[in-house]
Structures are given as C-alpha cells and as structure tokens.
Design a protein around this nucleic acid. Structure first.
Length: 344
DNA sequence: AAAACGGGGGA
DNA sequence: TCCCCAGTTTT
C-alpha cells in the first residue's frame, strides 16, 4: 500500500473531533486556519469558539471595529493575524459581494493568507488538489523519506512542497491534507514520537537509520535581543489613568499600553522621574515602583525587562481614561497581567 | 535570504 | 532552559 492510502486509513480511525471539521463553510475554515497559524489546537480552540459566536458571518466580522476584533484576539499573539483577518473580511464584503474566493490563486490574495492557508482552504472547502506544507508535514516527510534539506531554506521549501504535491490524493485532497497534519501532531511528534507503533516504521528512513531526533533539519536560530520597558501608570484622582495606542510598526501594533519609556539599558528612579516630569509637564510628583523584581516578558525574539512605575497626580493635562473602562481596550498580555495584579 | 512578529505548553 | 506550534509579511 502506498503512503497516501496508509495515511488516509490511519486517519479514518484516528481523526480528532474538532469544531472546524464539521463544516466546509470557507468563512469558518478560514477563521480556524488563521487562528491556528503558529498556534496549537488546544490554545486556539476557545478563540475559534469566541470568533464564530461573535461574528457568525463574514459580514459581521467586516462590520466590526478593528479594536473589538483585537480585543477578542487578545492573548493569542501575532496580532497582525487579527488586523489582516479584519481587513480581508472587509475586502470580501466590499469587493467580492461577500462571496468567498473559491480557488487557491484567489484565496491567496487575501491578506494574511500564504501558501499553507490558501492550500488548506482550497482543498478542504473546494476539493482543489493542492498540498499543505506546515510544521507537521515538514516533520513527517523529512523523517519518512529521510530528507535532510533544511526546511527553512529556499531549496527546502520548494522540495517539500513538490514532494507533498506528488503525494496528495487528488481524489480526496481535503482528507489527505488533514490526515498528514493530524498524523504529524499525534504520532510523528517533535519529541517522543510513537515510532514503535507507527504505521510507517518498516519503511521510515529516519527510524531505520536512527535519525528520528535529527530530523527535520532547521537552520538559523533567531537571536534574542533585550530591551528595558518602563511603563508609567498614572493614578489621577483615584479613578483615572493614561493609556496610549501603539501606532508604529513592530510588536503590538494598534494595541494599547500605559505610556512607555523604552531604553537599551536599565534606568534609575532619578532618570525615570526626570523624564516623566519633562514629558508630562509635572513640577513635582509622587512615584513608586510597583514590581520590586523586574518582570521579564519573553517573546520568541526578544526579552522585555519591564518595570511598572505608579505615579499619583491630580494635574495631568493629557486625555485620561477611566480605570473601569480599561477592559474595553486590547492590550498585550504583559499589560493585562499587570492590570490583574494591580488593585486599582 | 533574513528578520520580524506573541504567547503558551511540554520536556 | 530550550524548542515547538495547522506561517506570513516585510526588509
């Protein structure tokens, strides 16, 4: 029996029961695929439930405010996914009369949709025989076929896509694509894969050459940078504070935060005090450090060494926000954790 | 071709 | 602590 047949047989017995497996509605499939980019099923599931409940159709999503979409996305990370999702919903409604594109080529034109997601939607919703290549597929194929080309090299990306395309069952691409991903996540796992009971273990090159833990090959570890974040938490007359929107490109674009003083080195109380006085035109102020120990917020590519400075004042000229309204604004997890820990 | 982009979970 | 996750976009 060939690779695809064995895989689909395995899937028919072992497929997981997931909410987005009950539909072929491209809007729902699209939603699930965007949510699941670089995100595990367990983490993405509640977000899929929230989004389908709040925005049952693409028209509802298109009509929403970006701020509300980001607020619903809060905590999931990679916030450009939410901004692109919202922009694409408006594009589908305004330019395509609300009709979801139905070919790989047209689907890929949506913001936030690359080769993987376009292949997934085209195959699952429209039976187009285009193969998905995600982290699971790289792992399964590199091991079973003993391919040592780095998966994050230009050559590797082309090589694995070509192989997957050759293997995909053109009669049932949706089943094949979901089968290989499910197999990768449940059996051919990154660590402690279930090789002893694997359906491919008699032919798997990695298993028979004892190279399972060495595959797939990946190059270029991202180096981590350190930054110092000092958030200024104003307390104005007991019930007001000050927040700002991150409008620049970079992390957390369009999310909100307390006024931020960023630096490459640690700043002293004196330096913080001076900068706050100048920036907010305060002659004197009462300032205290909330967290005695620095909070290191770890992202995949940078470590943010963070301090929250609490400033009490009554004569602030800037536009303040009611503390009880803070939950209306999308904020990074780092900020949300502070709001939860700090008893305003 | 390389860097940027979050956060949670598992070993 | 390190690695991985149903990747895409920008530089």
């Amino acid at each position: 029996m060939n690779f695809s047949k064995k895989l689909i047989n395995w899937y028919s017995v072992n497929k997981r029961d997931l909410p987005w497996r009950k539909t072929q509605n491209p809007y729902f499939i699209w939603l699930s695929e965007i949510i699941l980019q670089q995100t595990q099923v367990k983490q993405g599931w509640p977000y899929y439930s929230k989004f389908t409940a709040n925005y049952p159709t693409v028209f509802d999503l298109a009509a929403a405010k970006e701020e509300d979409v980001l607020n619903l996305w809060q905590g999931l990370g990679y916030y450009s996914r939410a901004r692109n999702l919202h922009a694409s919903a408006k594009y589908i409604v305004n330019e395509l009369d609300g009709i979801f594109p139905n070919t790989y080529k047209e689907i890929k034109k949506l913001k936030g949709v690359g080769d993987y997601t376009a292949s997934a939607i085209a195959s699952i919703c429209f039976n187009e025989p285009t193969a998905v290549v995600d982290g699971n597929v790289y792992r399964v194929l590199s091991r079973v076929f003993g391919i040592e080309t780095p998966i994050n090299s230009t050559l590797g990306i082309k090589e694995f896509k070509t192989l997957a395309q050759k293997l995909v069952d053109v009669k049932q691409p949706a089943t094949f694509n979901q089968a290989i991903m499910d197999f990768g996540s449940q059996v051919c796992k990154p660590k402690q894969p279930l090789c002893e009971t694997c359906i491919f273990n008699s032919t798997c090159l990695a298993f028979n050459l004892n190279k399972v833990s060495a595959l797939p090959v990946k190059l270029n570890k991202t180096k981590i940078t350190e930054k110092y974040f000092n958030f200024i938490v104003f307390l104005v007359d007991g019930d007001l504070t000050l927040i700002e929107k991150r409008t620049k490109k970079g992390i957390w674009q369009n999310l909100y935060q307390f006024p931020l003083i960023e630096s490459k080195k640690e700043l002293t109380l004196m330096e913080i005090t001076k900068r706050v006085k100048v920036q907010f035109e305060l002659s004197q102020l009462e300032i205290r450090l909330f967290n005695k120990d620095v909070i290191t917020h770890k992202l995949s590519h940078q470590h943010l060494k963070t301090k929250f400075w609490v400033v009490s004042t009554s004569n602030l000229t800037a536009n303040t926000t009611k503390i009880k309204d803070l939950n209306n604004y999308p904020v990074p997890v780092l900020i949300q954790n502070f709001i939860n820990d700090f008893n305003f």
